[in-house]
Nucleic acid binder design. Structure first.
Lengths: 148, 148
DNA sequence: CACAGTGAGTTCCATTTTGGAACCCGTTTG
DNA sequence: CAAACGGGTTCCAAAATGGAACTCACTGTG
């Protein structure tokens, strides 16, 4: 299988990888979600090549995660704004962050914090089953092959 | 920045990408979590090159996500078992799956289902703040740069 | 005993992707 | 008019990937 086959997979994890499955794309998305929206700003922060950045921005746009919006005319310049689809990835990113803090620890401090918007207090993400309210853990879950 | 710098980043998303940030690694991890544990079985399912699979298994093992366990002697053969760190990624994967079902839809059916282990009924993942019990969405979250 | 088969890799080479730097294009500012 | 800014594209070398063949240690079959 090649990368180009991934978008057509039935598995949602595989389709997610077809968009975000490389070293940089999720970090670019993260930056736009944290308010960094211009080509040069993203490039300077991540220090990735302009070539790759250009390519990834196009990919994120084509999958509906970013929207290219002009912020000035003459010369026309664009900002990359996260769409609702991108914003809906925030909880996933936060769950991922909590996982990495436990399982890929470091002495360095996290550059960003996720706070409750109303109270400005730290949040502690937990994945639950909306049907029962019970926490989802590897112990509570049974994975079954689907045969439709 | 190069890929080799990612593991030393303070950002947890970046460190996660240093382990899972390529097309195949998360799919390999997914398969081991779903019970596929032998080299040839993973290779046949994903149809990735043996070379890349060998490399990724080593990486997952070196980051503590997989454990190589012999299942027979003469000749010694190994299975790759997910560690607790890998199992703890299940909720993240499930949140990701729910995201992709909404934002990267497809007509094909999902090859796996996440069921409640006790009741065998479908689950509906939702990320909440364990402190307040409120759902975490992009609207409820405020992202702040950390200055320690 | 020769020989095909199995499982887990490794090696080799061609094709892709990435990293790094330089270049381009329309403007604005000195 | 020259330099600077923002947002790219182009070029080439280096690294990663895809595909196939090969190895090694057995096992089972005729």
């Amino acid at each position: 299988m090649k990368w180009t086959d991934l978008p057509n997979e039935g598995c949602s994890v595989a389709r997610t990888m077809s968009v975000l499955g490389d070293r940089w794309t999720l970090l670019i998305l993260r930056d736009t979600l944290f308010g960094i929206r211009r080509f040069d700003d993203i490039q300077k922060r991540l220090k990735i090549t302009r070539h790759v950045l250009s390519d990834r921005l196009k990919r994120l746009e084509s999958h509906g995660l970013l929207e290219r919006k002009p912020y000035q005319e003459r010369p026309t310049r664009f900002e990359y704004h996260p769409t609702q689809a991108a914003k809906d990835f925030v909880p996933v990113m936060q769950a991922m962050t909590a996982w990495a803090q436990t399982h890929l620890p470091t002495e360095k401090s996290e550059p960003y914090r996720f706070l409750d918007r109303a109270t400005r207090s730290p949040t502690n993400p937990k994945v639950i089953d909306a049907n029962t309210g019970a926490e989802i853990t590897s112990k509570s879950i049974w994975v079954e092959a689907n045969r439709d």
